[in-house]
């Protein structure tokens, strides 16, 4: 059976060389999209896809996008956590692609927390 191989290796190498080495912790921010059952049902995958596309469109090279499991607040999914390096993480709730893009621009790039989408501090359950 055919094994999938990626062509264009040199092209990727070339492009990737210009990318900051995120594994060495030089990232400006980390965005975690929560992928528990409720999150997936509420559209978390679409949010992740939209986020990746926007990061590419804006040629942002120093933001890590990752996923994690259930955040424990099913009724507020989809959710994402934005962590600017050196600052406290902010949880965003009831997201859609447009809100995610706004968070990327305002919070991640400009440093202003988008309060209207953020989970009110104190309403978060700690376990």
């Amino acid at each position: 059976m055919k094994k999938l191989k990626i062509g264009d290796l040199e092209k990727i190498r070339e492009k990737a060389r210009r990318t900051a080495n995120l594994r060495q912790g030089k990232a400006r921010a980390k965005i975690t999209v929560h992928m528990g059952t409720c999150g997936i049902a509420a559209g978390a995958r679409e949010i992740l896809t939209a986020l990746m596309k926007e990061i590419e469109k804006k040629k942002i090279k120093d933001v890590i996008v990752t996923t994690s499991g259930c955040a424990g607040l099913c009724s507020r999914e989809p959710m994402a956590t934005v962590e600017i390096t050196g600052k406290a993480p902010v949880k965003y709730v009831d997201l859609d692609a447009a809100k995610m893009k706004k968070i990327l621009v305002n919070h991640v790039l400009k440093g202003t927390v988008v309060k209207e989408y953020a989970l009110a501090i104190g309403s978060e359950r700690t376990y």
Binding site: I12, K15, A16, T19, L22, I55, E56, T66
Partner: peptide
Amino acid sequence: IPINNGEV
């Protein structure tokens, strides 16, 4: 190159 690189 990390596999989660956008280009990859």
